[in-house]
Design a protein around this nucleic acid. Structure first.
Lengths: 225, 225
DNA sequence: AGGGGCGTTAAATCAGGGTTAAGAAACTTT
DNA sequence: AAAGTTTCTTAACCCTGATTTAACGCCCCT
C-alpha cells in the first residue's frame, strides 16, 4: 500500500532532505512552501498524513491546521515546531494536531511517526453502530436499517457522541463540549438540536429514543415498551 | 481502551514534560494551568483520572478537589504535593484524594500510579448499597430488591447522603448542605422531602426507615421491630 | 394548657424541558 | 455579486412535574 503525504515547510533545504528521504522509503511526498499553497493541495488531494511547519509565510501552521479541521478533514497532522515551548504544543493540540516533533529532529524519528500516524488512520474505525443504527463517519451519513437520516453537522455530532456513550447518560456539559468545543452558544440551542434529532429518529421509525435524565443530560437507548 | 486524564498544574515546564510523556504512552492528557480552568474541564469531560497540583493560582488543589467531590464526581484524584508534610497528606485525603505523589518524582512512578487508578475506576461500578437498597449513581436510579424507587433530583441526593453516612445520624445542616450547597431555602423544605423519601421507601416495602434524632437530624437504619 | 418540634397535606410557585417560529449566519448556486 | 437555500441561534411560549411555602395536626414535655 502506497503512502501519500504532504509537507508544508518553507525551509527549502530541509524540505528537500525530507522529500528525498521519503522517496527512498517509497512514500510519495508533496511539498508546499507556504500555508496558502498547502491548503490548496490539501483540498485537492487525499493525503494519509500532513506535516506542518509552524513558522510559515502567509499563513502559519496553527491557522492552516484549524482551516483543515474546519473543512471537516481529519487527516492526521504532525506539527514541526522550532522550539519546545508548551504554549506551542497546547495550541497545537487545541487546533487539532495529532502529533508534533521538535526541531532539530532525526529524520528517522519523523519517518517512524509518519508511519504510526498513517497506520492509525487506516486502522481507524469509520463506522459506528448501535443496533440497526449506523454512522458512516467519513461520509457523514447515518442510516437506520438502510433508511437514511437527514442530519445537519450539529445533529450528526450530537448523535455521534450519544452513540459513543450509548446506554449511559451523557451530561449536557459533555454534549455541548462535543459539539461546540470551547465557545458554546449561550442559549437553548442544545435542546433544539436534540429535538431535531428525535424527529429524525422518528422519521426513520428507529426503535431508539433519546432519554432525558432530568437535571443532568441525555442518553440513547433502545425503546422498551 | 484509551485513557483520558486531566492535569492541573501551573508549572508549564513540568506540565509539558508530563503531557509529553503520557502522549507517548497513548494516554491523552488535557492540561489546565489554574484551578478555575481545571474545574471547567472536569465539568465538561469524563476523565479516568485527575492529577492536581496543590499550589495553584486562583483556586488551590484542595479547594478544587472539594468542589469536584461536591458535584458527586468520584473520578480518582492524585495530588502532586511539593513537600512531604503530614498536614498536606491529611488535608488531601480529607478532601477526597485517592493518592498523592511528592515532588520531585520519577515520571515513571506517576505513570504507574495513573494506570493503577484508572484500572481501579474501570473496575468500579458506581453503585452505592445499603442492605437491599442500591443506588446506581451514574444512571441516577434507585432500587430496593429490584423494585425501582421514583426519586426526584432532591430526594435522590438526600438518600445518597443518608446512605453514605448510613447508620449514623446526619445533622440537618449537613443534609441541607449536601442537597442545596450554599444557598438554601428558608423554610421547611427538608422535612417535606424527607417525607417524600419515606413514602417511596414504603412504596417499595423496604425494610428501612429514616429515623429522626430530635433536635439534630436523621439517620437511615434497618427496621428492627 | 400551651409551646416546640416534627409530620402531613395541599396549594402556589418555579424551573426544566419540549416545541415552534423568526431572523441571522453560513453556504450554494447562478 | 446576488439570490436562494440550508442550518443555526435566539427567544417566546407551554406544559409538566418538582420544589417551596404555608397551614394545620399531632405528640411529648414541662
Amino acid at each position: 500500500m502506497s503512502i501519500n503525504i504532504l509537507l508544508v515547510e518553507d525551509d527549502i533545504d530541509l524540505a528537500a532532505t525530507i522529500v528525498d528521504y521519503f522517496e527512498v522509503e517509497s512514500i510519495s511526498c508533496d511539498h508546499a512552501a507556504n500555508g496558502v499553497h498547502g491548503l490548496a493541495l490539501v483540498e485537492a488531494h487525499d493525503y494519509q498524513v500532513i506535516l506542518l511547519d509552524i513558522n510559515l509565510p502567509e499563513m502559519d501552521g496553527f491557522t492552516l491546521c484549524q482551516k483543515i479541521r474546519e473543512s471537516s478533514n481529519d487527516t492526521p497532522i504532525l506539527m514541526l515546531t522550532a522550539r519546545d515551548t508548551l504554549v506551542d504544543k497546547v495550541t497545537g493540540f487545541d487546533a487539532g494536531t495529532d502529533d508534533y516533533l521538535v526541531k532539530p529532529f532525526e529524520i528517522e524519528e519523523l519517518l517512524i511517526r509518519v508511519l504510526a500516524l498513517s497506520k492509525r488512520r487506516s486502522g481507524q474505525v469509520s463506522k459506528l453502530s448501535f443496533g440497526k443504527l449506523v454512522l458512516q463517519l467519513r461520509e457523514r451519513l447515518a442510516f437506520f436499517d438502510g433508511r437514511e437520516l437527514k442530519l445537519t453537522p450539529i445533529t450528526f455530532k450530537l448523535l455521534e457522541k450519544l452513540m459513543r456513550e450509548s446506554d449511559k447518560p451523557v451530561s449536557r456539559a459533555v454534549l455541548m463540549h462535543a459539539v461546540w468545543g470551547e465557545d458554546q452558544p449561550d442559549s437553548n440551542s442544545l435542546k433544539v438540536h436534540i429535538h431535531h434529532l428525535r424527529k429524525q429518529l422518528e422519521k426513520v421509525q428507529a426503535n431508539l429514543l433519546i432519554d432525558t435524565e432530568p437535571g443532568y443530560g441525555f442518553s440513547l437507548r433502545e425503546k422498551t415498551p
